[in-house]
Design a protein around this nucleic acid. Structure first.
Lengths: 137, 137
DNA sequence: TTACAAGTTAGAGTCAACTAGAAGTCAAGA
DNA sequence: TCTTGACTTCTAGTTGACTCTAACTTGTAA
């Protein structure tokens, strides 16, 4: 069991940010100690680390909330709850997930494009410096 | 030669945004008509479209400015100016470019990771619905 | 020449995502 | 018991990236 500052250390988020995420619903409310302090499970840390990755991919906190909510259902299923409880919404959830996947794939394509642009520039620069060395002799 | 609203139409940015980008230095100042209105070259449109792509990759406007500044030197070189004019700063520029390339590549890796996560979830969901169909009979 | 659309600048407002401060609570050790 | 440090809530401020308004100018068509 971890305090907010331990979670902060392990995830790189400040306690301010962690509380803020909780307030806006990105993180669900953790249990409290007798004194009212937030008490986190280890799993919360990896959850936040996953969240950080999504953030780095340029997803907004709203998108992340939507995306990670997919996980809640999965958690419950893995904990042995009956999958048919979620049947009515499954189709919609799959659609959302597919949309996200498509989004991610187009992002990857764009990154590939940018990498090729950058590599091209780099090659040109490097050729340039070689020429320069020759010219400056 | 294009007006700001034509550029706006072609790029999907509002005139407000275009002027804002100019103000903060993401776009350099275009020529003006006699009346003082901004006049854009066709090339400016593709420049902005490239900029939009970088934005979608999650780069901040500051990062984009840094990144696209690499292009200015290249433009000059391609226009036939003497590369040795840029010699003293070339090494630094290459370093910046390499840093960007590394950044882009790590972004790609993370996207790949997220895609694999999403695909895994999707597979699980799809297996789940199949089961559900069987169970619900 | 007048009306109107489309441009101009300066500056204020908005929204997301934090970030910090104030004032108070709680538990543990001197 | 008192102090200290880490927490609490509430609220206000900041930053990045727009977005809009007000007041004005310019170009063109009737």
């Amino acid at each position: 069991m971890l305090t907010i500052s331990q979670v902060s250390e392990q995830t790189g988020l400040t306690p301010y940010t962690i509380r803020y995420y909780e307030k806006i619903g990105v993180l669900h409310e953790p249990k409290r100690s007798n004194g009212g302090a937030r008490v986190y499970k280890e799993s919360e840390v990896s959850y936040i680390q996953c969240l950080n990755k999504l953030k780095k991919l340029g997803l907004s906190l709203e998108e992340i909330t939507e995306f990670t909510r997919e996980g809640c259902v999965m958690d419950k299923i893995q904990q042995g709850e009956n999958p048919s409880n979620y049947n009515p919404t499954l189709k919609k959830r799959i659609e959302i997930l597919e949309k996200h996947l498509m989004g991610l794939e187009s992002r990857r394509q764009e990154i590939d494009y940018m990498i090729s642009l950058a590599e091209e520039k780099l090659t040109l620069y490097q050729e340039l410096t070689k020429e320069d060395i020759v010219n400056s002799r």
